[in-house]
């Protein structure tokens, strides 16, 4: 499949998944604030936003799978940088928490942290590979 088609398919999944994630987060935060849900139900409801994040991650995996070999190589490299980066940060911060009493960070930050590092890595990798402008993403 061509890169632009793969990108279109990815965006078709990414935009609704993120919109539903946002709505579910707002809804559950509202429910928690106003005590509209009992605690066991709140636990179950807290998982709902994660479902949309999982859909997004699976969509990203499909996107990489659908790219041609060169674009796939760039994506895989960026994913490796993202994984390595977030593991290094998690290890360093985890040790600081355990050994130096640093404040605990929510585990939830792992996904945005990964995507931030992955995004930066992809921009650099694409630039170094001669893939410039919006053509790198479309």
């Amino acid at each position: 499949m061509q890169t632009k088609h793969a990108h279109r398919r990815y965006m078709k999944l990414f935009i609704p998944a993120m919109a539903l994630y946002l709505f579910s987060m707002i809804g559950i935060s509202f429910a928690r604030k106003h005590d509209t849900l009992p605690e066991p139900m709140l636990y179950a409801a807290a998982i709902i936003p994660a479902v949309f994040i999982i859909i997004w991650i699976l969509g990203h995996m499909r996107y990489i799978h659908e790219l041609d070999e060169f674009m796939q190589k760039l994506q895989v490299k960026a994913v490796l940088f993202g994984l390595a980066g977030i593991m290094i940060i998690a290890t360093i911060w985890g040790l600081m928490e355990e050994l130096a009493g640093a404040p605990a960070l929510p585990v939830f930050y792992v996904v945005p942290g990964f995507y931030f590092i992955y995004g930066l890595a992809y921009i650099i990798i694409a630039k170094r590979a001669g893939v410039k402008g919006w053509g790198a993403y479309l």
Binding site: Q2, D68, E69, F70, A129
Partner: peptide
């Protein structure tokens, strides 16, 4: 059935298919 970026990378020798 590949992207324009892939053709460019092959032509410039940045990528071996």
């Amino acid at each position: 059935d590949v992207s324009r970026q892939t053709i460019n990378a092959i032509e410039t020798g940045r990528y071996d298919p």
